[in-house]
Computed example of a mutant assay.
Amino acid sequence: MVTTQRQKPVFRFAPSPNGPLHLGHALSAFLNQDMAAGGRLLLRIEDIDLTRCTPEFEAGIYADLEWLGISWEKPVRRQSDHFAEYHAALHGLIKRGLVYPSFLTRGQVRARVSASEAGGSPWPRDPDGSPHYPADDRDRSEGERGRMFASGLKHAWRLDMTRALQVAGHALYWSETGDGKTGEIAADPSVWGDVVLSRSDAPSSYHLSVVIDDALQCVTHVVRGLDLFHATSVHRLLQVLLDLPQPIYHHHRLVTDASGRKLSKSNGDTGLAALRGKGLSAADIRHLVGL
């Protein structure tokens, strides 16, 4: 009789090397390692932002994780090594008419939003508070787009959310085991509007690269912060459109400062390297993040 061995669960910790890791990252790394006990833990370097990500910050990630006692399988997947895979997925969506080139600059979009709101018409915004991209830009003719391409105008590629939902053809859900809502969660990608999948200064967006990476790395469990809870709606839609498997999601609580503000690299919160320099131990860090 032939027996099959049950696949071990696969977890991944996926920081971006655009600043020093802080306590919020430590919580996520600890949870991934703890929950992956008996399974596999991968490390992925999410460095698609070529302007902000640096080798120095990447080296800092390895040093901080080793100090915390986090161990991971090698080799590490670095997103900047896989732009061709993201481009292939994007090209497939373009051929199916699910993605369109968008030419409006951030300044032009802000002007449109300001004019609308000044006139008393509220502008739709996504869960992060950013205004939706003007939907009429998707209606340009092929001739007009061709002339804009030929003129050398910079552009991004955006998901046509209306068309994408029509093609998906059914309600979307994901399995959630985290610190907020749990169970089968109804996904509503429409609240994000026409999200960017690629732009001139970043060949792939977070949304596109993360679902492709998770599928290619056979990730079964995604453990990440609650700040990405709503983004999972977009990820579920892309998984359906690209015929990718869906992992189980666990969105954990966020580590905040004394004022209740989420820790952020950009706001200069105390990093793990600085805490290590003050003499704290990995056990101290576990205590500080409530584990």
Rank of each mutant, 00 (worst) to 15 (best):
Q7Y: 02
V10G: 09
V10W: 05
V10P: 01
P20D: 14
F30Y: 13
R40T: 11
L42A: 07
L43F: 09
T51G: 08
A59R: 04
L65K: 00
W67N: 11
S71N: 12
K74R: 15
V76H: 00
V76N: 02
S80R: 09
E85Y: 08
H87K: 15
H91N: 15
H91R: 13
A115Q: 14
A118Q: 10
A118Y: 05
G119T: 04
G120D: 05
H132F: 11
D136H: 14
D139V: 09
R140K: 15
R140D: 12
R145Y: 01
G152D: 06
G152A: 13
H155V: 07
M161A: 03
A171S: 15
L172K: 01
S175W: 13
E176R: 13
G178W: 01
K181S: 10
G183F: 09
G183P: 02
A186M: 07
S190L: 15
S200N: 13
S204M: 00
S204T: 15
H207M: 02
H207I: 10
V211K: 00
L216Q: 12
H221L: 14
H230L: 11
S233V: 11
L238C: 09
P245G: 13
I248R: 13
V255A: 12
D257V: 07
A258V: 08
S259I: 00
L263F: 00
S264I: 09
S266R: 15
G271H: 01
A273Y: 02
A273G: 09
K278I: 02
G279K: 09
L280R: 07
A282T: 02
